[in-house]
């Protein structure tokens, strides 16, 4: 192994597992390290001085999405993610391109280096899946009685979750032909204008499906905030506790709870 000079730098670049590729302004290859040569399945003689897009053949080649072209056009760093079919299944690659400049600072070409981010992408996918699972778990619409549904809400309501809650409720109403749905928001610590609007929207939408929406378990803090914000929930039926709401729901579907005599 050489100990100094350009040769050493070249050898280091060759041992780098990431693909490194340098081109001039006309996309003629100036340099390709070992990883790049392996990727293209070629030798230095067949690569240097040839057009890079004839050897790489990415879907982005010769399109405005090519990050080297973008980097050379505006002199900034550009990154792009792509999927390539390597020998060992699909690999996800992240290509980053920077412009190459001469002493005067004028752009004379571009340098691209490609990292294998398969593990990162797989982790991201797993995270997304888990996020979806948590979201599904956080909006369980439960059938409490024939014609009565209940949706216990715990935690923070944001726009995404409110939308998901609404979709889940409406679909459940459709499939179960329910007359009343109780939204129990005892576990919701704070409510702001946006959340209140979501609640109003949800009640309106359920009403359009022919199902009355009752809200139960509004905590003192939430009630105080709602009145201080000046939000009018007058059109929404609210009950103190889940059992009160259930009683109201029973009366909506013409049922009544009675106490039977104690067994001897």
């Amino acid at each position: 192994m050489k100990t100094n000079g350009i040769e050493l730098e070249k050898e280091i670049l060759d041992q780098l597992p990431a693909i490194v590729l340098a081109v001039d302004k006309n996309f003629n290859t100036l340099y390709a390290n070992n990883a790049a040569l392996t990727f293209m399945g070629s030798t230095p003689e067949n690569v240097i001085g040839k057009h890079c897009y004839n050897m790489v053949r990415n879907p982005q080649c010769k399109t405005p999405e090519c990050c080297i072209a973008q980097a050379m056009a505006d002199g900034k760093v550009h990154s792009i993610r792509s999927e390539a079919d390597g020998g060992t299944g699909n690999r996800f690659l992240e290509s980053t391109a920077v412009p190459l400049k001469d002493e005067k600072g004028e752009i004379v070409g571009g340098l691209e280096f490609v990292l294998d981010i398969t593990q990162k992408v797989l982790d991201e996918k797993k995270l997304n899946e888990q996020g979806r699972t948590i979201r599904d778990m956080s909006t369980p619409t439960i059938k409490l009685w024939d014609g009565i549904l209940v949706l216990p809400v715990v935690g923070v309501i944001d726009t995404n979750r409110a939308q998901h809650m609404m979709d889940s409720m409406l679909n459940k109403i459709l499939s179960s032909n329910s007359r009343a749905i109780i939204m129990d928001i005892q576990g919701v610590a704070a409510v702001d204008t946006a959340v209140a609007n979501h609640l109003i929207k949800i009640t309106k939408a359920t009403k359009l499906m022919g199902c009355e929406c009752l809200i139960s378990g509004i905590s003192p803090g939430v009630a105080k905030t709602l009145t201080q914000l000046g939000i009018n929930l007058g059109s929404i039926k609210t009950k103190a506790t889940l059992s009160d709401a259930l009683e109201e729901a029973f009366s909506m579907i013409n049922l009544r709870v009675i106490t039977t005599e104690a067994k001897q």
Binding site: L170, N171, K204, A205, T206, K207, L208, M209, G210, S235
Partner: peptide, 19 residues
């Protein structure tokens, strides 16, 4: 009768008066 979930949510989203 028979308003679909998608229609219901889009109606309230564009603020239709459904009261």
């Amino acid at each position: 009768m028979g308003i679909k979930p998608a229609i219901a949510s889009s109606l309230v989203d564009f603020g239709a008066d459904v009261d």
